[in-house]
Write a protein that binds this DNA or RNA. Structure first.
Lengths: 323, 323
DNA sequence: TTGTAGGCGTTATCAG
DNA sequence: CTGATAACGCCTACAA
């Protein structure tokens, strides 16, 4: 037995498919008798009708799906995956509230193009992009220059074509230095891998630390972290994101460190009470703002086709301060 | 300027749409001249042709997407979200290798039906289901009784209709007791919220512990964990999953606990070296097996329509031992 | 070897 | 108020 379609309902309820469509979609500019409406609704229920979002997408030219894109990198450790996973989980919640479905797409660091194409193949309505290689942007701009609204999440890149929401690292590190000024001890920084080169550079510039005081957690070097931390015994450490923070906290027992974790994923609860935290205002992190921005551009595009791609509001960074 | 379609290519390359389709899909039962093939391929590239997976889905009757479903519960703490997120991240990797795209779907604990319907609306090809309420299964079986292959991930339920991959908790807890037999101290258990009642019961039965020695981490009670742990100073603790494990490790400094974490998400690296771990063989956890199983049933269904729904191989638990 | 045409399930534009 | 009917982009017998 095939899936029941509108045609089936129409036949059963003695009306036309058009009428069925009107009733089921509650089209308001069409007047339908209560009697027929009920008949349609009833037979729809009786036949266990399931609308086909595929067919709808085809005719509407958009899918009702949003995509989360992130780079899959060999060097990335578990912490990065936790970060992406959390992003997905939270984005799904946002999607649900907004009436969208979420497509999660890992992009191959070496060959980004085919993965990125999927966005257009599936007619995704909007994209959030997290941590992508600089070189990939050539491919990306080809795909997105006109068309799908796309917002970059915590990526610093000199391309006015994209909307960007970023952590204000300069401000955050300054605040960290200020807050931990009263105490002695060497300063250091522990962070996750960052695929995007410019973003990494921005972070390191803002940190104002010697290279030997910076530890980048990769898939393979976690065993060297304890040594690094021991060398900074009694020091003041900044840690980028909650997941790395949790790990560092665990690895730094009895080292009398003053840890400050930059909470960018809204999971400050994960951290033990003795570490300090820097959090975005009202706990509205980059994801929330990026999502909101994306929706804004989707709506704008729906209203006015000439809007997107004209370069109007592009190119601005939206910087999120931590406090 | 509209999206380029096959028709555009056909016109430009002076062939019919059928030929274009044959070439682009590499249909082998059709013989195409190398000359025309090249011409088609070239013009496709020139016109920047993007195939519409939407249209393809419509005609094929399936979408090329797999779904990860999980319940969103008010009581769930961050650890649960980490778990789901990790699931999503890893499942995406599996999907990519298998040539699928991943749809992530959070299900409202109170009103599961509408969320579950999406699977059919989008013509998803297969589903992995993680931790769903018992009552939801009535709705679920309506949707899935015939049709989409679905595998339950770590859910104990007395319904022979579903394929299930579960952790063998009885075995795991027995192993834990055996491994930690040499040491004194009270035993306890810390675990995440588990939405599915029968699963929770199975776990607690296998643990063989008094209620007061079990701590279920919810969104609101993390602050009471230190007290709980302190009451078990010097004891032997089992912890369910790496994320909770990390948190407990952090919260139990100087309490001289012997912690054993049941690693079900393949993230044992997250844990400090002084905690013990129980891991699935070859690090093939529930997710990997469930995914494999799902693919098997998808293939079976593709080959033979009468296969699925006949109840043949349904109802069996696939139990994963830890070691 | 290539072309024609019907259909996949919906939506939307016209007529009635 | 309701009904035909033409798209949407692609696939695939069946013809030529």
């Amino acid at each position: 037995m095939r899936k029941t379609t509108m045609k089936d309902i129409a036949r059963e309820a003695k009306v036309s498919v058009a009428t069925v469509s009107y009733v089921l979609n509650q089209v308001d500019n069409q007047k339908i008798t209560d009697e027929t409406r009920c008949r349609v609704l009833d037979t729809a229920k009786k036949l266990d009708y399931i609308p086909s979002l595929t067919a709808r997408s085809l005719v509407r030219g958009k899918s009702g799906m949003l995509a989360l894109l992130f780079t899959r990198n060999e060097r990335d450790g578990v912490w990065k995956k936790l970060y992406y996973g959390m992003l997905a989980e939270r984005m799904e919640a946002l999607c649900k509230r907004a009436g969208y479905h979420l497509l999660v797409l890992g992009v191959d660091a070496e060959r980004p193009s085919p993965d990125i194409e999927i966005v257009r193949q599936r007619e995704v309505d909007g994209v959030l992009l997290a941590d992508v290689k600089k070189e990939a942007f050539r491919d990306i701009s080809i795909h997105f220059s006109m068309g799908v609204p796309i917002v970059l999440l915590n990526i610093y890149i000199d391309d006015p074509l994209f909307h960007k929401v970023v952590i204000d690292y300069r401000q955050a590190f300054a605040l960290w230095r200020e807050r931990s000024a009263g105490r002695g001890g060497r300063r250091f920084l522990v962070l996750d891998t960052v695929t995007n080169e410019d973003t990494m550079k921005t972070i390191l510039d803002a940190a104002q630390l010697e290279p030997e005081s910076v530890f980048v957690l990769t898939a393979g070097n976690a065993d060297r972290l304890p040594d690094f931390l021991a060398r900074h015994r009694g020091g003041r450490g900044a840690v980028l994101n909650e997941f790395v923070g949790m790990f560092v906290a665990n690895a730094s027992r009895d080292l009398e460190l003053e840890l400050t974790v930059f909470c960018t994923s809204g999971c400050a609860e994960l951290l033990p009470p003795d570490v300090r935290t820097l959090i975005s205002a009202e706990n509205r992190g980059p994801l929330d703002l990026a999502f909101q921005l994306m929706r804004f551009y989707i709506d704008a595009k729906d209203k006015d086709d000439t809007f997107v791609g004209s370069g109007d509001a592009y190119g601005e960074y939206i910087s999120i301060p931590l406090q």
